[in-house]
């Protein structure tokens, strides 16, 4: 087990960050060059002002019409993404690792806040799963990949929470946590999780069209 752990925090971590970073950059560059080649006229409407205006307006809960009419999705989505960004980056246990391996550190989340965010993400995943299983529209359009990416996002938080609460053998739980986190990183460029890379651009494009050409808001 020890070897597996060493592997997970050693070569595997390099591989995971490598796949995530290089994969994301390659996907972004290839998508951009495809856009230049095939969607050139549309690319020309891209505008910083209207793109950012659209992104900002969609980042305000209950601001866009879609959020207003889907209150449960709105709350769940914001809580989920907030936790998804804050906990991995600012958890004390993670920052300690940066310090240990690379010798730098930065402010961390209070333990209690981290616990709350972790639980919130776990609950949000359960809400997403419940919707996916019961909502008529979702049942009509859901594919295997939708369940897979939900599971991929869920596992690091579940195992991390269990490890932090000392449930199960600590080494096994921690190893599972590290591996599931690495799985998620590697999945981002190549699954639907790539909306993390492309989402801002598709939003900004819509904002640019609506702002610059249609003179109407897109939220």
């Amino acid at each position: 087990m020890r070897e597996l752990y060493e592997f997970a925090v050693g070569p595997m971590a390099w591989a995971a960050f490598g796949v995530f970073l290089i994969g994301s950059v390659i996907r972004l560059i290839s998508m951009y060059s495809l856009a230049r080649k095939k969607d050139g006229p549309f690319l020309s409407y891209m505008s910083w002002r209207f793109g950012l205006r659209s992104i900002l307006n969609w980042l305000i809960p209950f601001n866009a019409q879609g959020w207003k009419e889907n209150p449960l999705v709105c709350v769940t989505t914001f809580v989920f993404h907030l936790g998804l960004i804050l906990v991995p980056l600012f958890l004390l246990g993670h920052v300690v690792l940066w310090d240990q391996y690379w010798g730098f550190s930065y402010p961390t989340l209070p333990e209690q806040a981290a616990d709350i965010f972790t639980i919130a993400v776990i609950v949000a995943c359960l809400v997403f799963a419940w919707r996916r299983a019961t909502n008529r529209t979702l049942r009509f359009v859901t594919t295997g990949q939708d369940w897979l990416v939900l599971l991929i996002a869920f596992l690091p938080f579940l195992t991390g929470f269990l490890a932090s609460q000392h449930v199960g053998p600590p080494l096994v739980m921690t190893t599972l946590h590290v591996l599931s986190g690495e799985l998620m990183l590697m999945a981002i460029p190549f699954t639907r999780l790539s909306h993390m890379i492309f989402g801002l651009f598709s939003r900004a494009y819509m904002g640019s069209e609506f702002g610059g050409v249609r003179h109407a808001k897109d939220w």
């Binding site: 999705v73 919707r131 996916r132 529209t137 979702l138 639907r192 790539s194 909306h195 492309f198």
Partner: peptide, 10 residues
């Protein structure tokens, strides 16, 4: 690729 099948558009 990025449509999350969230059903918000219904």
């Amino acid at each position: 690729e990025t449509c999350m099948r969230c059903g918000m558009c219904g």
